[in-house]
């Protein structure tokens, strides 16, 4: 507060002293002093942003036009890396896998998180405990979660063992069969990731004014109509936020396939970020990895832009 005072005080003087040239010069100096404070305080953060975020972004774009081995001399390739990626059937499969993951994961995540948030109304006894329990997977390290899920999925593991003792039938080899592996990763990811959206939706539902739902109930609307026609529309900004964030992070899926399957069997669960990691840090082709990263960036940018354009039709900010 003490810092704000001298900055605020000269304001009346500025208007009062406009007639005097000398006084105006002084106020300009004061104004100048004031305008310097902002940049001065922003400088440390600005430098950090420039050096650790903007510079790497620019450098990665530059690297994407080179054959850039981790060790050795880079050579200029022009669009060579991009051409290679677009003509590589494996990269095509990798993009397809990522899209498949997004298409399966995002709706499932939203349905589960919204469903649980709707269930956790203030009338539910111990709702806070449930909220904490449902949120735990989101704050547990993904590596630990994956290790547990691997034990569930493997032949002779929990799922297979339970199914065998109950029905005598073996469960599929979830992670060792290319037809099941992606589904297994999606299910594990939904379990891991729904807690965050659930918390956001739950808070938004709590903020829906009671007088609106009461008025609708008096008018004869049942619980389903109230949820569908009133609550869902009022929390649409939160759903939009949840959808956006989930979409962006799901395009960047890495840890689950990296630890559960290494991208296999074959390339059945290889995703774009896993591909980038392998190309960059396993096979030391930083140029190709950077080009793939830029392709991912463009995909995410495109999908986000479409979302923003589409939101006008279903997101209501005027509650």
């Amino acid at each position: 507060m003490t810092l704000l005072k001298p900055a605020k005080a000269p304001l009346p003087e500025v208007t009062a002293a406009t007639a005097s040239g000398k006084a105006k010069a002084e106020t300009d100096a004061q104004l100048g002093r004031r305008t310097m404070w902002g940049p001065a305080f922003a400088l440390p953060h600005g430098l950090g942003l420039a050096i650790f975020t903007l510079l790497p972004i620019v450098v990665s774009l530059v690297i994407s036009f080179f054959r850039w081995p981790l060790l050795g001399t880079p050579s200029f390739l022009g669009l060579g890396n991009y051409e290679k990626l677009f003509s590589d059937p494996i990269f095509g499969q990798v993009v397809g896998n990522t899209v498949l993951f997004v298409v399966l994961y995002v709706p499932l995540n939203l349905v589960v998180s919204l469903g649980l948030a709707a269930w956790l109304t203030p009338r539910i006894k111990g709702r806070h405990i449930f909220r904490v329990i449902f949120f735990i997977p989101s704050i547990t390290p993904v590596v630990a979660n994956v290790v547990v899920w691997r034990m569930l999925y493997q032949p002779g593991g929990f799922i297979d063992g339970t199914l065998q003792s109950a029905t005598g039938i073996s469960a599929p080899n979830f992670l060792g069969d290319e037809h099941w592996a992606m589904m297994a990763i999606v299910v594990m990811s939904v379990w891991q990731g729904f807690g965050y959206n659930m918390l956001v939706f739950s808070a938004a539902l709590d903020a829906v004014p009671e007088n609106l739902t009461e008025a609708a109930a008096i008018d004869g609307a049942n619980a389903w109509t109230i949820f569908w026609r009133i609550k869902l529309k009022l929390i649409s900004p939160s759903i939009f936020f949840g959808t956006m964030m989930t979409l962006i992070t799901s395009f960047q899926v890495f840890a689950q396939p990296f630890i559960l399957t290494k991208g296999g069997p074959g390339s059945a669960t290889s995703t774009i970020v896993l591909y980038i990691y392998n190309q960059g840090f396993q096979f030391h082709q930083l140029g190709l990895a950077s080009a793939a990263a830029w392709i991912l960036f463009v995909i995410i940018l495109g999908v986000t832009a479409v979302q923003f354009l589409g939101q006008k039709k279903w997101v209501h900010y005027d509650a």
Binding site: G263, P265, G266, N278, F283
Partner: peptide
């Protein structure tokens, strides 16, 4: 120089031949 890549591909792809999918 490509030993790491070969090792990575073995780990991804041998699952298919060992499990009888290919």
């Amino acid at each position: 120089t490509n030993s790491d890549q070969l090792g990575q591909l073995f780990n991804q792809y041998l699952v298919k031949s060992i499990n009888g999918q290919q």
